[in-house]
Simulated scan of single mutants.
Amino acid sequence: MRYVEEYRDPGLARRIAAALAAEADPARRYRLMEFCGGHTHAICRYGLEDLLPRNVELIHGPGCPVCVLPVGRLDMAIDLALSRGVILCTFGDMMRVPGRDRRSLMRAKAEGADIRMVLGSADALRLARENPGREVVFFAIGFETTAPTTAVALLQAAAEGLRNFSVFCNHVLTPAAIAAILAAPETGEGRLRIDGFIGPGHVSTIIGSGPYEVFAALHRRPIVVAGFEPLDLMQAVLMLVRQMNEGRAAVETQFARAVTREGNRRALDLLQRVFVRRDGFEWRGLGHLPDSALAIAPDYAAFDAERRFGMAYQAVPDHKACACAEILRGVKKPADCRIFGTACTPDMPMGSCMVSPEGSCAAYYSYGRARMEAGA
């Protein structure tokens, strides 16, 4: 890649759109889920759905770690910050996510909790060094993409003997979510059929494309790992349509400039060294999924905030009016939620999908997708 503009060329986009129009069989439907929230935002920002044939439908998936974090895990962080006097370090997009009774980290900060926005785990380590008399907790969240940076922080804390530093680990694993979506019944209320997947680009730079091969083989669903520019996504859709037309179900990589089959070996070694798999973990929208999240390994238990502070998880239901759960499963689109854009806006969010920069509701609101669909 030399220039980003090469992946936003309107002429090339029209050529791919023409190829899609010629190759998409008008007698069938193509239901394709883009797993990653970054893909959803690119699709909405560039109006890519308007370039697709009407029988090619893009379904937005659960690929936003902030969105899939259940209310109960957020409440654990809020309670820790309010009751234990720690310095809680978190990413900015977690600050306004509403927890139980719509209490957020921002509201807890206003009530006196010492909550600080950071760019990453290195900032949390720095705060621990600068405040030796305070407990500093890093609220770690993300898919496999960000988990290696948390692993590095844990290793650094152990090497320096930073006993006032710990991690509240909420890293979740992408393949488990794909497995849950594919295992869901395809009939009945609130169900849908997925014919193919646009695989996550950033996650796949870490884990590679290999882990998706079992899904293609067992469920006969093609998967194409894509980049985040408009032409990346248009080409990925064309690759999926061609696979379906040919009766194939394989894993292909459109994002070959960044993704290999094996992934990033050094990053994967870090994950294996520092983390273990949890038996189960609750995902907003998908429920309790086995083998779907990471916990801190026993060798680094001294830096595990859940153990250090005796934190216990308690499930909390989502707000009754919020359709985040259905949106994350792809059963509904943001405009199908009855409070979208009215009682729920980015300034006054009712659910995580409206808060996160990768949330589907935020994408629809920011780029006017809901208004365009309403006028269609």
Rank of each mutant, 00 (worst) to 15 (best):
Y7W: 05
R8C: 00
L12K: 04
A17M: 04
A18T: 06
L20P: 04
E23V: 06
E23I: 09
E23Q: 08
E23C: 08
D25Q: 09
D25W: 09
P26V: 12
R28G: 01
R29E: 15
Y30L: 01
R31E: 05
R31P: 11
M33F: 09
F35S: 00
F35C: 05
C36V: 02
G37N: 04
G37E: 06
G37T: 04
G38E: 03
T40P: 07
A42E: 09
A42P: 11
C44V: 07
Y46T: 04
G47S: 06
E49G: 11
P53V: 07
N55Q: 06
V56M: 07
V56D: 03
L58C: 08
I59G: 10
H60D: 04
G61W: 11
P62S: 10
C67A: 10
P70I: 12
G72Y: 03
D75S: 03
L80H: 01
L82K: 15
L82M: 13
V86A: 00
F91G: 08
G92I: 11
R96E: 13
P98N: 04
R102Q: 09
M106F: 14
A110P: 09
G112W: 12
S121A: 15
L127H: 10
A128V: 04
G133Q: 06
V137N: 01
F139N: 11
I141A: 06
G142I: 02
T149N: 09
L155A: 08
A157K: 05
A159S: 13
G161M: 04
G161P: 05
R163W: 08
R163A: 12
F165W: 04
C169P: 15
N170E: 11
L173R: 15
A179G: 13
A180T: 11
L182H: 07
A183W: 01
A183R: 06
A183M: 05
E186D: 14
T187Q: 04
I194K: 09
D195S: 10
D195V: 08
F197Q: 03
I198Q: 00
G199M: 01
P200L: 01
G201I: 07
V203S: 08
I206A: 07
A216I: 10
H219Q: 12
V224C: 10
V224D: 03
A226S: 15
F228R: 02
P230W: 03
P230R: 00
L231P: 11
Q235E: 14
A236V: 05
M239D: 13
M244K: 02
V259I: 08
N264Q: 08
R277N: 14
R278V: 11
F281K: 00
R284V: 05
H288I: 15
P290H: 12
S292A: 15
A295Q: 14
A297E: 12
A297W: 14
D299F: 05
D299E: 15
A302F: 13
F303V: 15
R307H: 10
R307A: 13
R308K: 14
G310Y: 08
G310V: 11
A323E: 05
E326Q: 13
L328Q: 06
L328K: 02
R329M: 06
T342Q: 03
P346W: 13
D347N: 13
D347L: 13
M348E: 15
C353K: 07
S356E: 09
S360R: 01
S360G: 00
C361M: 02
C361W: 02
A362K: 12
R369W: 12
M372S: 14
E373M: 14
E373Y: 07
E373F: 09
E373D: 12
A374R: 14
A374E: 14
G375I: 07
